[in-house]
Amino acid sequence: MLKPMLAGLSMLTLALVPAQAADSPDRLYDRIVAEVVAPGFSNLASAARRHAAGWQSFCAAPSEALREGLIVSFNDTADRWAEVEIFRSGPSSRDFRHERFHFWPERKNAVSRGLAALRAGSAAATPAQVSAASAAVQGLPALERLIFDDELAADRCKLGPAIATNAAELASQMQAAWTTPAPMASAESRTALATDLVTSFAVIKDDKIEAVIGKTPAEVKPKAAEAWRSARSLRNISHNLEGLARVTSVLASSLPEDAALVSTTLQAQRIAAGLSGDLGAMAAGDRRFEAILLRDAVDAAEDRAVIGIPAALGVTIGFNSLDGD
């Protein structure tokens, strides 16, 4: 008897919640920019500034304690980046800023080659030199190498402060691009946003998980994982999904009949947040099922996103990028 009573009670509770008027697509876009994108890039800019200051302190008097601090501020910057990385083609993309802040996937060993070129000078690099160099050495992947690859320890202070200062400048520029002034909502801007969001689920599943774990344990490629040097592969996925979850929670007001977009995104985020360690090692060993569970959770969220996000933002998403020819 108890179960039917509880069920009846919860139905009553749901019925008493006042029906919310759905936001228009333009209003939803404005809210996403104001409530997720702008604060996200603001947080990134602050974190990147702190990290740049950390490099100055470390290089003034290197110590293990300050290096630990550098790792903390690097991780904070990378967390904040992963939450806004999903906004790939908006105003922040001008001048290759997205690629310059986070050149990934790394192709042709571009980070190592770029660092070698920067290192060739006799004096310490300047932010202006970094800004004019290959995109591969202007942001997080280059900083990760300098902090976590001990073979580059001798070059840390020759290159690190300038790269971190350049990255902080890029983050400030990206923040400004979304806020002064905020971009206007339009069919075009909503389409770009919807494309970015749907694409992000596919990037996480295809590039950040499947490309690493392969179809069998024998196909695992640990070094295809994003940020494997700093053991951040799973953490990046978790923060990507956190950014996406923030967006879907805004969209939820216009998706009264499709709570699954919000719940599946949150579920994937929780699974990612609960995992730790190296994704490649996980997929090659006894914990492979956990990697597959995460992949399937992202897949389920993607299935909902492809339908729900364009519908809420009032746009139609094409298919050339998904099944080109």
Binding site: S89, S93, F96, E188, T191, A192, A194, T195, D196, V315, T316, I317, G318, F319, N320, S321, G324
Partner: peptide, 27 residues
């Protein structure tokens, strides 16, 4: 130039120094 346009694929000349681009998403 390098342009950003979601789902862009179709391209034809639309004159000297100009092109028509078509996108699955953005018209």
């Amino acid at each position: 130039a390098s342009l950003m346009l979601p789902d862009v694929c179709g391209v034809s000349a639309s004159g000297p120094e100009s092109f028509l681009l078509s996108s699955g998403n953005a018209g």
